[in-house]
Design a protein around this nucleic acid. Structure first.
Lengths: 245, 245
DNA sequence: ACGTGTGAACTAATTCACAGCA
DNA sequence: TGCTGTGAATTAGTTCACACGT
């Protein structure tokens, strides 16, 4: 598995990594709208951040820009795509076929690019066998028997009390990266990466700020991101690639 | 509207704000499980971060702990709850009753505490009039006529091409804070706060790291958070309060 | 002129390490 | 002895400002 670091030796700063998907979206959008080139200023405006940050971020990927002109939108998209690994093949299994699981399965924009669903599992026998889109919900045993290659990413959309069991099953299937939507801290072996997404926290953060909105502070565009546990890195930003139900 | 700052004068650092909901969950959980007291070490372990950070964060809220003992779990929960404004009343309107909207409406844990749904709107006449839980989907006009008080928070779960219109309607209803799940940058007037949540970005961040997993780095628990656009602040962390479909 | 790339300055956040109270 | 609270040190990230290519 190829290693992508910055231009040099070092890995990219987490905040930069978190912004890359945003730049990618904007660059792709620019290409679609016929632009061949895009400047750090434009990128910054659309991302809701400042241009210096954009340039600093992109300079870590190499000298992609042309002075006086800007960045080649298509090339930029390609480079970011490569770095994010989106051009590789990322088989995904979703565990938990409840409302949220279904929403993600059907969301345009969630499973795009290199991410594709290879399995849908649940422990509830009333949904096992159900067909959703092109997939049939199976038990872990069934999926385990039928999968040729292990999934790279496991998505947990079970109720919280089942999350740990789901995690263990996904890990047993071979997943080393988990995206957990359940409000539960997972106990996973060394080497397994977990990313937590907590939607209710967003409301709490919003209301914290709203409660002191009186002091009308500048309001910026936002970015959305899950954070790396240990080294909590946030993601600044605007233009969220998203879930469109 | 009361102003909550740290102990002193200054507002809390964004990363701290993003961690508070996590501490809150853990403290509440501790209370439920019968513990009266919880230490920064325990908090840290459950949150997937280190104890110094926990103590620094909590010290900004006041001298809540007792040396040699730890923090009073119930008191801690109460204080954080107050700071996050969760004990206040936060009327929420959800715009866009597609799969994701329905998932959020039904998710345990999304609309809890002081957050409660006061309206469900959509532009699609085929869903207007539909009853979902205790609410009936209405048009913006209908809702506008029937709402007594403006919603404080608007949640956008429409397709991306409708997001801007939804935002404008929500703002017209009186919402000053928006939580946008659509992959679209919103153009909003000064004073309106937008928080973007992009679920597909999570996959991209996971795969970026997975692609260089070869170098087995330490794997931490993660935190999930949307970020404040301008000042991009991430959220470190583990134990995500979540969406359980 | 224009806009990138980047060292330098600055600001923010994390982590250390320990004094001090229960 | 145990664990908080917190200054000090460190590390990370952002922003400035300008030299340099086109």
């Amino acid at each position: 598995m190829e290693r992508h670091f910055g231009l040099n030796d070092r890995p990219l700063p987490e905040p930069t990594v978190a912004r890359l998907p945003i730049y990618l979206r904007i660059a792709e959008e620019a290409v679609r709208s016929g632009a061949t080139t895009i400047s750090s200023d434009e990128l910054a405006g659309l991302a809701g951040i400042n241009a210096a940050k954009v340039r600093k971020d992109l300079s870590l990927l190499g000298s992609l820009g042309t002075r006086g002109t800007g960045y080649d939108a298509a090339q930029l998209a390609g480079v970011i795509d490569g770095i994010l690994g989106a051009e590789l093949d990322w088989p995904v299994v979703i565990a938990g076929v409840g409302k949220l699981g279904r929403a993600l399965i059907n969301a345009r924009g969630f499973l795009t690019g290199g991410y594709h669903l290879v399995g849908l599992v649940d422990v509830n026998s009333s949904v096992i066998g159900e067909q959703i889109g092109e997939h049939i919900v199976s038990s872990f045993e069934q999926l385990s028997a039928s999968l040729r290659n292990p999934p790279k990413i496991g998505v947990i959309t079970t109720p919280d009390h089942s999350a740990q069991a789901a995690a263990e099953s996904l890990i047993a299937l071979g997943a080393h990266s988990l995206l957990n939507f359940a409000p539960k801290v997972l106990d996973v072996p060394e080497g397994v990466r977990v990313r937590y997404v907590d939607l209710s926290i967003e409301l709490q953060i919003l209301s914290y700020h709203a409660a002191r909105e009186a002091t009308s502070e500048p309001v910026g565009l936002l970015a959305t991101v899950g954070v790396e546990a240990d080294q909590l890195r946030p993601t600044p930003w605007a233009e969220a690639p998203g879930v469109s139900p």
